[in-house]
Every structure is written in C-alpha cells, then in structure tokens.
Amino acid sequence: MNEKTQTRLTLQNREIILVGTAHISRESIEEVQEVIRNEHPDMVCVELDAGRLASMTQQDSWDKLDLVKVFKEGKGFLLMANLVLASFQRRLGLNMGVKPGDEMKAAIDTASELGIPFSLCDREVQLTLKRAWASCGFWSKNKLLATLISSAFTTEKIDEQQIESIKEKNELDSMMGELAEYLPEVKRTLIDERDHYLAAKIWASQGSRIVAVIGAGHMGGVVAHLEKISRGEATIDTSNLEQLPPPSLFSKLAPWIIPALIITLLIAGFFKSGGAVSINMLLQWMLWNGSLAALGTLAALGHPLSILTAFLGAPIATLNPFIGVGLFAGIVEATLRRPRVQDIEHLATDVTSLKGLFRNRVSRALLVFFLSSLGGAIGNFISIPFLTNLIIK
C-alpha cells in the first residue's frame, strides 16, 4: 500500500480503504484502477455528485443551458464561478494529458467492469458553491471572486511532479493553512463540511469492505470523521449540510443600503438647495452609474445595444434591490448574440484562454453580465461621496 496516498481503516468490523488522489493526475488513475482490482470490495465510493457525473459522461450536458433563464434566476455569478473553476482544472489537466475527474470516472468504470456497485458520495456542487457564497461577507466575496479570476488566467506552468506532490501531507497542510487564513469561511464550506459529508456517505454505504476514492485534500478530515462516527461521537445525518444558511440581518439589509443612501442624498439636496440642484445630482449619479456599467459592457466586447442597455438599465437596477445591475445587459447580449452549437460544444475549452473567453458567446454574455455589474457598483461608490460633496458646498 502506498502510505502517502492510501489509508486502510478497520472500524466496527468494516474495512474502508481510502485512496487520496490528485484530480488531474495520470498516476492517480492507474492507482485507483489497481486498488479496486486488487481489493475487489463490496462497494466503491467516489467523490462525485450526480450533476458532475452527468457533465463528465453526457456530451449534451451544456445543450440545455438557457442563459436568459440563468440571468433571470440570479444565477449568473454562480455559473461564472463554475466555469472559472472548471477552466482552471481543465487547463492543468490538458498539461498533464488528462481531464479533471478522470480518476473518479476510472473508479466507476473499473467497478462496473467487475460488477461492483458504486455510490456517489459528494455533496451537489451547486449547493456547495451557494453555501460558500452565502457564508462570505462583502469583502470575502470580493476576495473569492478575485482569487477565482486570477486562478483561471494564471500562466504558471505546473508539471506532473508538482501535481503528484499535491498528494503529500506536508504540501496539503500548507495549502489548507493558507486557504484557512485567507478565506476561512470558504475553507469551512469547501473542505471541512465536505470532509464530514463524504465520511457520512461513505459510512452509510453498504458493504463490509469499501474502497473510497477522494481528493487527497480530504484524506485527513475524512479519516477523522469516520473514526468519530464509528465511536458514536458524530452522526451520519447530513441534512444540516444540505440547506442554505439563513441570511444574516446585514445581508437582508445590504441590497437596500445603496438605494436608500442615494434617495436620501437627493432628498437632502432638494430641501437644502432646491429642485434644480436635486435634479443635477440625479443626473450626475445616473451618469456615473450608467457610464461605468456601459464601460464594463464595452470592456466585455458586448453588443452596442447591450452597452446602451447597461447605461439605461443600471440606474433602474440600482434603485430596485430585486434586480441585478448586470441583468438587463446580460439578457440583451444573450438574446442578440444567441449561443451557437459550437459555442456550447467548445465552452469548456474556450474558457481556458482570454481569446476563447471573448470569442465564445456564452462566456462573453457572462462577461457582459459580470463587468456591467462591476462597473455599475463602482459608479455607485464613486457617486455617493460626489453627491455628498455637492450638498456640503
């Protein structure tokens, strides 16, 4: 047994063999296949959910993508996060000649070949991302977006030896420590919660001998949780990890703060200096807000009508907390430049480069949505002190 990547546990007369993998490692694929063939367990558990398995095995998984619906349901940022994470792993995988998750698929294929049942033991990825996003405060959300974007477009080359070193404990401890320090809320959701979830699902799987294939980063946490479960110190009930946390009072009030500030400033300007000054303040705010939203859309190479829509729609969206600033521009872009078949087929590959990102109509519509939202938000932050200064004069 490879002590760096495998752990064998005997708990309550059950044997659980954990195989820690790097998700873009050719060596991990070979190791997973070898362990399953040699151990021939009663059950094979894999760190996948049904959605990710479908995206790996169904060629038409993106064909059902409706961008307009995504924007209307407020899932634009969630889809962007999905694509950025996928592009980062895919680019690394292309360097290694493998695709992200190939070792999990190899585990399923090997189990099926040998007639061994398998179970999907990971939490649904959309729920994990939603919980991670909901757990972040304002600054943490910005740090998370910045980290995702910088990771997606890093030009650093990683060789196969570095990929394999990811599975070594000292490397993992360092990485987890950095993540916990930089974004403790995200680390808790992406790592700690899923350690518990994976352990619970592995324990709940049938069979007295189980092989569980998990990312190496989860190895220590899953072992600890399995031992606690076997001693009765932890439960296999994961219902609390499958719900979104209730929003805090601040998160409920936050969407109303900017509209309230702007309206308060306009009213204050009216009572202090009259209607002409108040109207001038309104026009100045609309100019800042609309212009920077339009500039963001232009930076995304949006359609001219998308740029105009961003300019006109940003002030309306700002005053209505139920509408995202980028909603209008994103919908117009997706409508005027409807994704083609090749855009859907090449999406996963196109988002690995800046050229492909702008060429693909799906990713460009998402850029329009994101950058128009960012521009409108910057416009509001600039305009508020500007309007305040007009009143003080």
Score class of each variant (00 low, 15 high):
Val223Trp: 12
Arg359Thr: 09
Ala86Lys: 00
Ser55Asp: 07
Trp256Gly: 04
Ala107Leu: 06
Val19Met: 01
Ile214Asn: 05
Gly232Leu: 02
His40Ser: 10
Ala22Ile: 11
Ser112Gln: 13
Glu233Ser: 00
Ile191Val: 11
Ala216Gly: 13
Ser372Ala: 15
Leu183Cys: 12
Gln284Arg: 13
Arg188His: 11
Arg90Gly: 02
Arg8Ala: 06
Met176Phe: 15
Val68Gln: 14
Val211Thr: 12
Leu295Phe: 15
Asn289Cys: 15
Ala200Val: 03
Phe88Cys: 02
Val68Glu: 14
Ile382Asn: 00
Ser135Ala: 11
Arg364Thr: 12
Asp195Gln: 14
Arg361Val: 01
Asp109Trp: 08
Arg26Leu: 12
Val213Asn: 00
Ile29Gly: 08
Leu179Gly: 01
Arg340His: 13
Ile116Pro: 05
Lys252Ser: 12
Leu265Pro: 11
Ile263Trp: 15
Gly275Arg: 04
Ala329His: 07
Ala276Gln: 11
Ile384Gln: 08
Ala365Leu: 11
Gly275Trp: 10
Gly215Arg: 05
Glu30Val: 02
Gln33Gly: 15
Pro247Ala: 13
Gly269Ser: 15
Pro246Phe: 01
Arg361Cys: 02
Glu113Phe: 08
Cys121Trp: 01
Asp63Met: 14
Val222Gln: 03
Thr189Gly: 03
Ile392His: 08
Cys121Asp: 05
Phe250Arg: 13
Thr57Asp: 10
Leu18Arg: 09
Val325Gln: 07
Ile262Leu: 15
Ser248Thr: 14
Val277Pro: 00
Leu305Arg: 12
Asn142Gly: 09
Lys169Val: 07
Ser291Ala: 15
His40Cys: 06
Thr154His: 10
Ser140Phe: 02
Cys45Glu: 01
Arg340Tyr: 10
Phe118Tyr: 15
Gly217Val: 04
Ala224Val: 06
Leu127Asn: 10
Ser291Ile: 09
Ser140Pro: 06
Ser61Asn: 02
Glu47Ser: 02
Ala299Gly: 09
Pro100Glu: 06
Ala276Thr: 10
Pro184Gln: 05
Ile202Ser: 08
Val19Arg: 01
Ile307Glu: 09
Pro41Met: 04
Ala334Gly: 13
Asp42Glu: 12
Gln6Gly: 09
Val19His: 00
Asn13Gly: 01
Glu30Leu: 10
Lys130Val: 00
Asp237Lys: 10
Ser140His: 09
Glu168Leu: 15
Gly275Pro: 00
Arg361Asn: 09
Ala329Phe: 04
Ala132Tyr: 00
Arg209Ala: 05
Lys75Phe: 00
Ala329Ile: 12
Lys393Gln: 11
Lys69Pro: 04
Arg188Gln: 13
Ala180Ile: 14
Leu198Thr: 04
Leu241Ile: 08
Phe328Pro: 02
Lys130Asp: 03
Ala254Arg: 14
Gly376Asp: 07
Thr349Ile: 10
Pro246Ser: 10
Lys393Asp: 08
Thr128Ala: 02
Asp237Pro: 06
Leu387Phe: 01
Ala152Ile: 01
Glu47Asp: 05
Leu65Cys: 03
Glu242Gly: 09
Asp102Ser: 13
Ala293Glu: 01
Ser174Met: 12
Glu242Ile: 07
Leu172Gly: 06
Thr154Phe: 06
Pro247Asp: 14
Lys393Cys: 09
Thr110Arg: 05
Asp173Ser: 11
Phe311Arg: 06
Phe311Ile: 04
Arg361Thr: 02
Val44Asp: 04
Ala268Asn: 15
His196Phe: 07
Arg361Lys: 15
Gly115Trp: 03
Ser248Ile: 05
Asn360Val: 10
Ala317Lys: 04
His23Asp: 09
Ile344Arg: 14
Gly290Glu: 10
